[in-house]
């Protein structure tokens, strides 16, 4: 069955943000890390924007140099993800290549107002893993009636990418033990225990942002 991650993440996608008091407390305990935290969040953000630009160059101009940059960063991480999920090196190499080739072929489906490049590649790699390792089909939700937008609103793109950068930084700053548990859940390691404590990852903001975008689009479709 699915993993026994009882998490803390539990309420996170459901509730928009932690109560102000708790947040203030966390800020206080992390004050000494704040300066480097901001700097590295900004770096993450700049890097994410660069990946979005690279994806758009691949999508619109079939830019092989930009593809090579994406490949250099993401292919070894996809390979790592697949090996952590139980693939041997040969299969992981092959699936990582397939994942990156799919990125090229499906570039027109990439929507930077809905996902970061890392997230989008994760979903492709995950589906390759289900196919190759578990030999199962992956039922997907039906497409939204409007499909991917040709030109999403720039403000939406910026906001989503910013939230993704914050999430990435928050994950990196989690205590080792909690982070490893979350990684195991995503790598498909089923010998699971529980994530007992609140991790405080900012999932709620991303959920709210996607939800607003969906509401707006549904409204526009009426």
């Amino acid at each position: 069955m699915f993993t026994e991650v009882h998490h803390c993440l539990a309420d996170m996608a459901a509730t928009p943000s932690p109560p102000a008091g708790r947040r203030a407390m966390r800020c206080a305990t992390k004050r000494n890390r704040a300066v480097s935290g901001v700097a590295s969040e900004k770096q993450t953000r700049v890097q994410q924007d660069a990946w979005v630009a690279a994806m758009i160059a691949v999508r619109d101009a079939r830019d092989e140099a930009e593809f090579a940059r994406l490949f250099g960063h993401f292919a070894p991480r996809v390979k790592a993800f697949l090996m952590r999920s139980g693939a041997d090196a040969t299969l992981a190499e092959e699936c990582a290549q397939e994942t990156m080739a799919a990125l090229w072929h499906k570039a027109h489906l990439f929507d930077p107002s809905r996902a970061s490049v890392a997230t989008w590649i994760f979903t492709i790699a995950r589906n390759r893993r289900i196919d190759a390792l578990r030999r199962q089909r992956r039922p997907e939700p039906e497409d939204l009636p409007w499909g991917p937008e040709p030109e999403p609103d720039q403000a939406d793109v910026l906001a989503l990418q910013q939230d993704s950068a914050k999430l990435a930084e928050a994950l990196a700053k989690l205590p080792e033990k909690q982070r490893v548990l979350i990684e195991k859940a995503y790598f498909g390691d089923l010998s699971q225990t529980e994530i007992a404590e609140q991790t405080g990852l900012p999932l709620g903001t991303i959920k709210s942002r996607i939800r607003l975008a969906l509401d707006r689009l549904r409204h526009a479709m009426k």
């Binding site: 390979k79 994760f122 979903t123 939230d163 994950l171 959920k207």
Partner: peptide
């Protein structure tokens, strides 16, 4: 939308993984 948030976490996990040379 909630799925989108959990997929974002998957993206962060992937990006954080120690790379394995291709």
């Amino acid at each position: 939308a909630r799925l989108g948030a959990y997929e974002s976490l998957g993206g962060a996990v992937l990006d954080h993984a120690a790379p394995v040379a291709m």
